[in-house]
């Protein structure tokens, strides 16, 4: 028996909007730790890891570990029927091939049940070891989204370079090239507007902008984004999900031929 009640149901709506472009089908895993997902895009270039810790739910009952295969487009269709202020409860019985999404309006005057068919998904689970990153950039998520969008009108790839000067996003294309430098800036009114660069050593990596732009679908979840870079590892682009967890996007770099 599974029963997860999330008072801030809009978080789940935003999570689905953040990942459904990148991943078509995925297994949602429930355990005592929380509600999680790990999935790769169809070309195995990017990976998304979601964790919503059990403590973040108003009610969290998961009698035994359960893996539920879902088509994310269909989940998104279901969740779009929930109001932004609705409380969302996920329910599944042991051995059932369906999951039920229950939506309650804040004043309890409307209660809706949406039952969705589960599917068998044969997905590969990857072990991601803890890593030391050469540079970690924390910046406003809207700023990062703007940079990715702007650069993708010029080129297909972005070079992200971190030096003592700041973090530089560069691209080049048929019509020309572009460089955007963001310097560390902690003298702002609100902490979420700060750009903070922790650098152990300079790093420069090249990535496909198409994936970066897809990751920025998570922007409504968090005012800030954290970008972790190491010269021999995929970049990690992380958005916090309130104080209950995170969405991490891993993207493999492009290398010189």
């Amino acid at each position: 028996m599974l029963e997860l009640r999330l008072v801030q149901g809009s978080l789940l709506k935003k999570v689905l909007e953040a990942i459904k472009e990148l991943v078509t089908d995925a297994n949602f895993d429930c355990s005592a730790t929380g509600f999680s997902l790990q999935a790769m895009d169809s070309s195995h270039v990017a990976l998304v890891a979601l964790l919503l810790r059990s403590e973040g739910f108003e009610h969290y009952r998961c009698d035994r570990n359960l893996s539920m295969g879902m088509n994310l487009n269909n989940v998104s269709k279901m969740l779009r029927c929930a109001g932004n202020d609705d409380i969302i409860t996920l329910k599944a019985d042991d051995g059932s091939d369906t999951v039920t999404f229950m939506f309650e309006s804040p004043n309890q005057d409307k209660i809706a049940d949406f039952e969705m068919k589960l599917m068998d998904i044969d997905s590969e689970h990857l072990g991601i070891p803890e890593a030391e990153y050469h540079a970690i950039v924390k910046m406003p998520s809207a700023e990062f989204a703007r940079i990715c969008k702007d650069l993708s009108s010029i080129g297909d790839t972005v070079v992200i370079s971190v030096t003592k000067e700041g973090v530089k996003f560069s691209t080049r294309g048929d019509i020309g090239n572009a460089n955007i430098v963001c310097r560390q800036n902690t003298t702002v009114d609100k902490p979420e507007e700060a750009t903070i660069i922790e650098m152990q050593e300079p790093v420069s990596l090249t990535f496909a902008l198409r994936y970066m732009n897809s990751f920025t679908k998570a922007t409504p979840l968090s005012n800030t984004v954290t970008i972790s870079l190491s010269s021999e590892l995929p970049v990690v682009v992380e958005y916090k999900v309130a104080d209950m967890g995170y969405i991490r996007f891993y993207l493999a770099p492009k290398i010189e031929d």
């Binding site: 590969e124 072990g127 090249t206 995929p234 993207l251 492009k254 031929d257």
Partner: peptide
């Protein structure tokens, strides 16, 4: 020109 690496080249199956 650049070659796109795969994420599975970095992380092992569990």
């Amino acid at each position: 020109t650049h070659v796109q690496l795969s994420i599975t080249e970095f992380y092992r199956s569990t």
